[in-house]
Amino acid sequence: MSAPGGRPVVEATGLTRIYAADGVAVRAVDGVDLAVEAGETVSVMGPSGCGKSSLLHLLGGLDRADAGEIVLDGRRVEGLSETSWAVLRRRTIGFVFQSFNLVDELTAVENVELPALLVGASARRARHRAVELLERLGVADRRDHMPDRLSGGESQRVAVARALINDPLLILADEPTGNLDSRATGEILRLFADLRASGQSLLVVTHDARVASTADRLLTMRDGAVIGHTHLGGVAPVGSVLAGLADFGDAGGAR
């Protein structure tokens, strides 16, 4: 689960992503330097449209950087082909999305076992592991339900189980509580705290101060750039840090 030799599981240098909108170049990610150590939880906060989600997508290979370097598990990856990225993602990265992104043609348990099947696990082994994770996350009784029959909290727990099934080096979570009510948010918070305690490396993009407060470090972003870097140690009261974010007037979703 952790990178050998204590090196960062992911390290980005000068990461830049420029979108062209109506002929105007928008620097969604602007020269970001970032490293996530093995077993570390890092939160990224910032106003809507500051580039948090774009950063996450670049780190997971879901989008291509215009400049900069990414080293994942000790390997330069920014120039990899789509196929190589896909194969690398299977074992190293687990994604958790705000809108869950469960494959709506598969049941809950089939969604969870999907990444295991993609790495070549036998159907029996993949199913066993998937059920185990669903039990651990408290949604085993919903295993045969289609995604549209699951509540938001259940869907997100299924999505977390799916992200965990291949024991990835790093979990990238994009607004994991963004679509959840307060009760479901509480469940996910406990889940993330458990993950952190188990030594799982996590990079969480969030608006939610409670989610951010579970991290070891908090990065704040504005206009595509990282403008603040705070060590929380995972237990620090984050009120003071969050107060600094208040002037962003942030109420929307992540970019």
């Binding site: 789509e82 896909a86 494959v103």
Partner: peptide, 9 residues
């Protein structure tokens, strides 16, 4: 989503 999970194009 499949590609995010590791499926190739």
């Amino acid at each position: 989503t499949l590609r995010a999970l590791g499926a190739t194009p």
